[in-house]
Amino acid sequence: MNYRLIILLSLLFFASPHLNAQSYQDPQHHACLKCHSNQSYSFHNDVTDKEVKRLMNPYYILDTVAISAGVHKSFDCTDCHSSEYEVYPHQATLKLEPLSTCLDCHGGDESYAKYKFEEIQAEVEKSVHHKVYGENFSCSKCHNQHTYAATARNSDNILEIVDYSNKMCLSCHNDMKKYELISGHANPKLVEVHNWLPNQALHFQHVRCIECHTEVVDSLMVSHNILSKDHAVKKCVECHSADSRLKASLYKYENIQKRAENGGLGSVLTNSSYVIGTHQSPFLKLLSIIIFLATITGIIIHSIFRILKK
């Protein structure tokens, strides 16, 4: 493990991040990306002595724009993958080589302490994903190591954070093939399972899946203990009332965070976070409708008398 780390760090030291960023932006001149960023690739077949053009396996196509925006943008492909991949056709045995896991680099390192990787690992081990699928359920199942961006930390747009976070879940939970790869059974119907939830589309846009599907740990920014669906929050009042998870973990955090980063009154006003007022309480909602109807009825009766007595 340390051996890998030393190689990695020395490569990082010698390889210019600027140069790598350049090559991600210019994939046509990159040894790997000239094939792996395109739908198709061409090569010279030495056996038949012909130029061949083939379709790229869609799962091996890389989004170079997302890579250049991701946290690992300063790494080159061969920093993590074997340099023998630079030869085509790739050797079959290369697939069997173990790759570094997240904690191989991020674990036990002071400079990453604030991200609390060890604590996250402990939480993941309690989660339903780990309980059912064990070690196979690695970090990268959710956090794409090629393109991952720390959106929740860096974005000032609540909708972007919600969207980014939910896409991590949906990349499997809304994808039959990827879901079955892990679970071995068919994909649950997300919309049907959440049929009980009013304003479903609006909730999915504004609330992260993890708000209801994790056990909140105050010391972690994002809880990683994904609960089984029987333990998910299923009561409106748990979010929309006194002990509001929604408010605590998103509304207030986002509101303050946005100002800390951008400053100025504008960012306060364009903040799209909001809380529901009296309509949170069914009693007050009913009361307000009754008062409103009573007012209108009073006005109608008064108007009738005015017309009659004119």
Partner: peptide
């Protein structure tokens, strides 16, 4: 929650 009361 104070935020809840304020919103109400």
């Amino acid at each position: 929650s104070g935020v809840f009361l304020t919103a109400i």
